[in-house]
Design a protein around this nucleic acid. Structure first.
Lengths: 243, 243
DNA sequence: AAACGTCGTTGATGATCGTCAATTTTGCTC
DNA sequence: GAGCAAAATTGACGATCATCAACGACGTTT
């Protein structure tokens, strides 16, 4: 809307994620110029780190392609995948706004593209565009409500139900409808990460997957999942809401 | 600092929570006057509801005394206590900022005092005081990081460790040091709420408490808890960090 | 005082899970 | 393609948990 021309050089933020509306679309022309100068595009391979837990903040990152995982680690080697970020999402804004070190790590869960916007640039953009701060505020509130949802499920769902719910969420993001109406996904995460998201061990996830297989609800082959009937999967959760 | 006089009428926000710094301390004189007009103090008995899940937002609430629980319910009667709010904390700001219905309920966990600040007043104060928006932003980021901590513990701690951790947090908020160095607390929550915070059933909490008793680590009598040696309690968690 | 509901505790039992270990599979490097 | 390391699966076993049920304690109501 505001940015009518800008000679689509294919990699300016103004024309990026047209459909998805990133946090940077509302900027005025001069701010867009500032953004273009302070921004650096990075292509990441699977597993590459965007920022690491404990590092000082050096700006924020806008996800432009692929999937980015937000992870927390401890000194024992435990790892929990807390959030998934997709194109249009901004990550690293929390430690920026609190001017502190990153409380989580972010890593590409597959080939991904992120744009780094350096610290000084974000500071300048925030000063000139109050709406940008509002976007971050909405983002953190949304993330908090997601976290509350997760905490509620952790306390009330069985592990099987938690895995089914997670599969349904991933289908919404990564699923492809096949001709016969069934769904096919390539999971963006390992079994270990699945386990950490469900709150159990990877061996247990293996066994629950085995039971889903024998029940005919889903068929797993590595990270490929075939779901013949998504409604049947969703029905597993409905019995909780109605009973 | 800014408000030097204001004739301490004992119940103005400017002189409330002097030590704890509420979100409303930074307001200028004229905004403080607006706040005083749009604010209504409420004294709540144990269990009384501040706002209910699903209601539309009608402003925010500043906790002035006691303890307020933030709770999520579902249609099956399941209830999970997600957060605790203490004097100086503001609650209800999330649905205010997203202009939506409350996603959680808030209730007094004991005799409490909250000040209701009506919707129009908060809107006016936010427009005149950008710093107030920042306070809410910091608050939501802090709550999100707490939620991430909880999610991490849910995935990596045993139920016993989760309960021990929760006890240590509650000791920090509600504990009193006795002459012999031991700590005494009155729990602000029921066993059922303890269970929901740990992510298990109340019967299991009962049994874990029983084991803590026989281990001599803590002594429970209703909501009164005696902890002879807080370090011994904390040591339960240390073995996780070092091992 | 009696009746009632909620909360908390305790017991018994079957189901589920965590752990250790062995093995297979997968993905990557050389 | 061979070789390697990490991931994933499977089995066995003990530990823990969810569930159902019974019971006592407590506060409120009638």
């Amino acid at each position: 809307m505001a940015q009518s021309h800008t000679k689509a050089t294919s990699h300016t933020c103004a024309v990026c994620h047209v459909g998805r509306r990133s946090d940077w679309h509302d900027l005025d022309e001069t701010s867009l110029a500032v953004l273009e100068r302070g921004r650096r595009r990075r292509e990441l391979g699977s597993g590459e780190v965007v920022f690491a837990q404990g590092e000082r903040n050096d700006g924020v990152y806008c996800v432009s392609g692929g999937t980015v995982g937000i992870r927390r680690l401890d000194s024992n080697g435990n790892s929990v995948l807390l959030e998934l970020a997709y194109p249009g999402d901004t990550v690293g804004y929390r430690s920026f706004l609190t001017d502190s070190e990153h409380k989580t790590s972010a890593e590409a869960l597959g080939p991904s593209i992120v744009c780094h916007i350096d610290h000084a640039t974000v500071t300048a953009l925030l000063a000139a565009n109050p709406a940008l701060g509002l976007r971050f505020l909405k983002r953190s509130i949304g993330a908090l409500e997601d976290a509350h949802d997760t905490m509620f499920r952790q306390a009330t769902f069985s592990n099987r139900h938690k895995l089914v719910h997670l599969l349904l969420v991933l289908v919404g993001r990564h699923g492809h409808r096949l001709v016969n109406g069934s769904q096919s996904i390539e999971l963006p995460v390992s079994r270990r990460d699945l386990a950490s998201m469900v709150g159990t061990r990877h061996e247990t996830i293996s066994r629950i997957i085995g039971r889903l297989e024998t029940d005919g609800i889903a068929h797993f082959s590595g990270r490929q999942v075939m779901i013949p009937n998504v409604e049947a999967l969703a029905a597993e959760l409905d019995c909780l809401a109605s009973a």
